[in-house]
Computed example of a mutant assay.
Amino acid sequence: MGSTSNLISAADLWADLQAVRAQSPLVHSITNFVVMNYNANALLAVGAAPVMAHALEEVQEMAGIAQALVLNIGTLEPDWVRAMQLALQTARGRGIPVVIDPVGAGATRYRNEALAALMQAGAPSIVRGNGSEIMSVAGLAARTRGVDSSAASGEALDAARALARDIGGTVCVSGADDHVVGAQGRHAVLSNGHPWMTRITGVGCSASALVGAFAAVQPDRWRATLSAMAVLGVVGEMAAERTQAAGAGVGRMQIELLDGLHLLDEASFTARLKLKIHG
């Protein structure tokens, strides 16, 4: 790992959030029906500008004006797969970051075929998923139960490293600890967040959308992924505390997460960040 990785600090990650807030990058998301609204709200809350366009007739034009592209395979159909391929090729041609969220990878043959077609259309800049998904994308045997992970994030590290080398980019394995792995061997672990985040539809998918927003303003894709995941983890931790203090549950926490993305301050972020960088 290069020495620059060891110099990453909370102040650096906070600067990336400030850049998102200042620049309001346009993030083109072709995502799934279940999470579309929540992902768009998460992007707006953090300061980015979402566009959720998936029609074959316009995806190339939309990818042509966006600052990042996020592809999520949660609810697939043939036209959406083709639209994702066209958008990916356009984004790669422009050199903007492409994030793939391989939701449920390994669960069905069609899902695996669609993902393979995407990867063949062009290597993404960043892949973010849970342990089972990353293992599946990397071509390793993994047991997948719907879109939930049957593998802990740490179990998928070898797969993540192999995949990062294969795409020449960054891989994030989400879980109790989030592992962010770069093609040059960089590896960081984030230990923020709260178990309740897994009980709210769209939080993981929103993580991928946020990664796209941060990658739009931070050219170091590994650092951008680290920044996005750090912000969401800290916000999730604080949201759970506020929710529990109010005697409420995960319905309230959805709103607290969005408020946290909007209102997060540097002092809270710096004090709470749990980051380890491995050399």
Rank of each mutant, 00 (worst) to 15 (best):
S3A: 12
T4A: 12
N6P: 00
D16W: 09
S24Q: 15
H28M: 07
A42C: 11
L44Q: 07
V46P: 00
V46W: 00
V46R: 01
A48C: 09
A55C: 10
Q60P: 03
M62L: 15
A63N: 07
G64N: 06
D79K: 12
V81D: 00
L86T: 08
L86V: 12
L88D: 06
L88M: 14
G95R: 09
G95S: 07
P102A: 05
G106Y: 01
R109G: 06
M119W: 12
Q120R: 14
G122T: 10
P124F: 07
G129D: 01
A141L: 11
R143D: 12
G146N: 03
A152Y: 12
L163E: 01
A164L: 04
I167H: 02
T170E: 04
V171P: 00
I200D: 02
V203E: 00
S206K: 00
S206T: 05
Q218S: 15
R221P: 07
W222T: 01
L226A: 03
V231L: 14
V234I: 09
E237M: 11
M238W: 10
M238K: 13
A240H: 02
E241C: 08
T243M: 08
Q244T: 14
A246P: 03
G247C: 06
G247L: 08
R252D: 13
M253F: 05
M253E: 02
I255R: 09
E256I: 05
D259K: 04
G260N: 06
H262Y: 14
L264V: 08
S268E: 11
F269C: 02
F269R: 01
T270V: 13
A271V: 08
A271S: 14
